[in-house]
Amino acid sequence: MKSSDAEVKYPPNVMVTGVSKSFGALKAVNQLSLLVERGEIRGLLGPNGSGKSTTMKMILGLLKPDSGNINVCGIDVRVKPVETKRVIGYVPETPFLYEYLSASEYLDLVGVAYGLDQTERKKRAGELLQALQMDKHVNEVMSGFSQGMRQKIALIAALMHKPKVLILDEPLNGLDPRSARIVKEILHRLAGEGVSILFSTHVLEIADAICSKITIISNGSTIAEGTSQEIKTIAGLKGSTLEDVFLKLTGSEDTAKVVEALKL
């Protein structure tokens, strides 16, 4: 964030207040509250099925919360879903691209949906394609793309309209080390420009390295929140890794016993 901006107190770009969501008898998200400030990279961690993806989808307006409020850049998601989507860039856990389109045709469609003209699309997508070494594949039909290539196209599609909020569900899945490093640096740069990033990952080293704040959720509720150091302190494991802290907080410390019981 620029120093002059830092002095001015902006409201958080993402404000989730007391949100709940159930699927039948399953309470996926329970009274969850979450703030993501401008320029913040917020890691959203939790075991499988803890409600991370559901929370992200509710912020994007893909799922309707049963209760609570969600506000993105001052826009109520429920009242103005199209306007909300305009300021968000989203990379789902599995990128569902139109496989029968070429990368170029797909990026055109996404760029036009975000209101980018031809010059802007050429500039923004062209730079990102080159950075992620996808420029040579841009005119290939995406059905033959590997998981990593699809992930790169999904990332480019999410970044090309310069979103104010980025929602990234496991964005580094399948990326080669070079591309993963580039994406991390892009995220840091975007955060520096005031973009709010909500980032979900199961690779806790990555979360520790790039997130300015972390929220750990379990069974749909927040169980810890703060910087990596603050969370370690809360867990009483100050000198430990984030992985140890995560396992303790989510009650999954019995990994050694589980493996032992397998008798492999």
Partner: peptide, 18 residues
């Protein structure tokens, strides 16, 4: 096997005009 098919010779991203 879904082999990739190139629909244009160019390896450059040339956005379509609106």
């Amino acid at each position: 096997v879904p082999i990739s098919i190139a629909i244009a010779e160019s390896g450059e991203y040339i956005p379509q005009a609106s």
